[in-house]
Design a binder for these strands. Structure first.
Length: 492
RNA sequence: GCCGCCUUAGCUCAGUUGGUUAGAGCGCCAGAUUGUGGCUCUGGAGGUCCUCAGUUCGAACCUGAGAGGUGGUACCA
């Protein structure tokens, strides 16, 4: 690439991309295993699709000639077609479903997980590449399909490690919101968007802030002014009444909503949908504290056509400094009946839920729910003398055959540094095979965990070193059993 | 995108109204301890003081522009 011999590239990951080490990889792998098992138990099949899609298949953010990378990472293929990295798993599903519609057993139920990419400004906890996990039903218009997705989300999050009560799924319906917009007299599309955006901010700004955004506009603490939706006072109060009609059981919420916007055709349709969802949730065993109706949930602006849901973290989370942090939404989804129609021209009902895996892992960690187990290193076989490498590898092989992680130290350093290496790797033990052991047919095993436990009380290095705690020299044939005993000593 | 704040060692940060060889703690490496990690002690390595331009006899410090980070806001499939 560069022909300047003195050029030294700066070793750094691209902005918004991150390296993830064993600790995070293992946590996320475990989440995906648990969630996949749940999704399969619900009858969803696995599907993997390519990282790239043709840009026109991804829809809304279709690159145009001047701004090909707006929102997505796009490049032009040999044949000059634009391809883009997928920004979620739903658009590729719509493409797949449209492409294979004739051959699929319908309704088509699938789950998928993998990296997605978004070319936008990264922020704290917000990356340009992240793992998403997604489950959808394509081809069922029944509200019960939405209820099942909600049940799936509840079960999946719990399997991932969120204890009951740590999160709740909040449900609403786009049809209710449309009924509300009609009732409030917001007819112009741009005004409708303003109203929905304002409603979406209820949890952050409170009713007063939302009222300002619905009316003339709001100036925030930094002095920036956000233009309002320009609704008249009676419309504002009906919107606020609607938005605040959550609380209590799902049934109670429905009754209150009916009081505010019942009577409009769209609103009644939405109420009927939520009513059926409520009944299905009861059958599915999803309780009131696991899924509730919340009229202030909006989610995205186009796209959704019926039920919308959002998974919200309820656990109090604190950052490293002990300050409270808002985690907010850890996943969401809803019904989108027009996505497949983009390809086929035929309206195809679909509903789904997705969550960010890293974000969920971060939520588990921040809430103290993640098992804080450190990544354990292998048993390290110390190298005394290069002439005996064959013996060292034989020992490592014996341990591996017994299912114990083991490695021969392959660096150049002396014994002291090898011990330090094993310590830093969090190895449970080292195996020492010096001249004495080899001629005697023995091995020396040092229990590093025991040493770690005892180290706190040590004052005198000399004494400590001479005592050699946790160290035993035993016949070579007893090695595996002795190592296993050390491993079993650790906490489950 | 807009507004504010910040940028000195791998990390967290000091730093004199602008004055010569820029510091600390932690971490790293080594020795004390030639077959023994974590404690202790001693030593060592490691810096374009974000970049460029300007003011000045002299800039880590002052001025301007830019880059990067961060907080808020907007947008968010």
């Amino acid at each position: 690439m560069t022909d300047r011999p003195d050029f030294r590239p700066e070793p750094r990951a691209p902005k918004g991309f991150q390296d993830r080490r064993a600790r995070d990889v293992l946590v996320e792998r475990r989440i995906l295993e648990q969630v996949s098992a749940v999704y399969e138990r619900y009858g969803f099949e696995a599907l993997d699709t390519p990282a790239f899609e043709y840009a026109d298949a991804l829809g809304k953010f279709l690159p145009d000639a001047d701004r090909p990378n707006e929102g997505v990472f796009a490049l032009q293929d040999d044949d000059e077609q634009w391809m883009a990295l997928r920004y979620d798993l739903t658009a590729p599903l719509a493409r797949f479903a449209a492409q294979n519609w004739e051959t699929l057993a319908k309704p088509f139920r699938r789950y998928a997980f993998g990296p997605v990419w978004r070319n936008e400004k990264p922020g704290p906890g917000r990356f340009r590449e992240f793992i998403q996990c997604d489950a959808d039903t394509v081809g069922s218009a029944r509200p019960e399909a939405d209820a099942e997705i909600v049940s799936l989300a509840v079960a999946g999050l719990e399997a991932a490690g969120l204890p009951r009560g740590a999160a709740v799924i909040k449900l609403n319906s786009r049809k209710l919101l449309n009924g509300l917009l009609t009732a409030a007299g917001a007819t112009a599309p741009s005004q409708q968007l303003d109203v929905l955006r304002a409603v979406d901010k209820l949890d952050r700004l409170g009713p007063e802030g939302v009222a300002l955004l619905l009316g003339a506009g709001r100036k925030d603490d930094s002095g920036a002014f956000t233009k309002g939706a320009g609704l008249a006072a009676p419309a504002i109060s009906s919107v606020l009444a609607f938005v605040q009609s959550g609380g209590g059981t799902r049934r109670e919420t429905l009754d209150r909503i009916a009081g505010v916007i019942g009577g409009s055709p769209q609103g009644d349709e939405g109420l009927a949908d939520l009513d059926r969802i409520d009944m299905a949730l009861k059958g599915l065993g999803v309780d009131e504290d696991q899924a509730l109706f919340d009229p202030s949930i909006v989610r995205g602006l186009e796209y959704y056509t019926g039920a919308v849901f959002e998974a919200e973290l309820l656990l109090e989370t604190r950052d490293d400094k002990g300050d409270r942090i808002r985690f907010g939404s850890i996943g969401g989804g809803g019904r989108y009946d027009d996505l497949v129609a983009r390809f086929t021209g035929e309206t195809t009902p679909a509903t789904g839920f997705s969550f960010g895996v890293s974000r969920l892992a971060a939520a588990l960690r921040a809430s103290g729910q993640a098992r804080a187990d450190t990544v354990r290193g292998p048993v390290v076989v110390i190298v005394f003398n290069a002439d005996h490498m064959a013996d060292y590898f034989a020992v490592a092989g014996e341990l591996r055959k017994a299912g114990i992680a083991a490695e021969v130290y392959l660096g150049a350093a002396g014994m002291k540094a090898q011990m330090k290496y094993a310590d830093r790797r969090m190895s449970p033990a080292v195996i020492m095979l010096g001249g004495d052991e080899i001629s005697g047919g023995t091995v020396t095993i040092k229990d590093l965990d025991l040493g770690r436990a005892l180290a706190a009380g040590v004052r005198d290095h000399e004494v400590w070193r001479n005592e050699r705690p946790g160290q035993q020299t035993i016949p070579r044939g007893d090695m595996v059993a002795a190592v296993r005993k050390i491993l079993e000593g650790e906490r489950p």
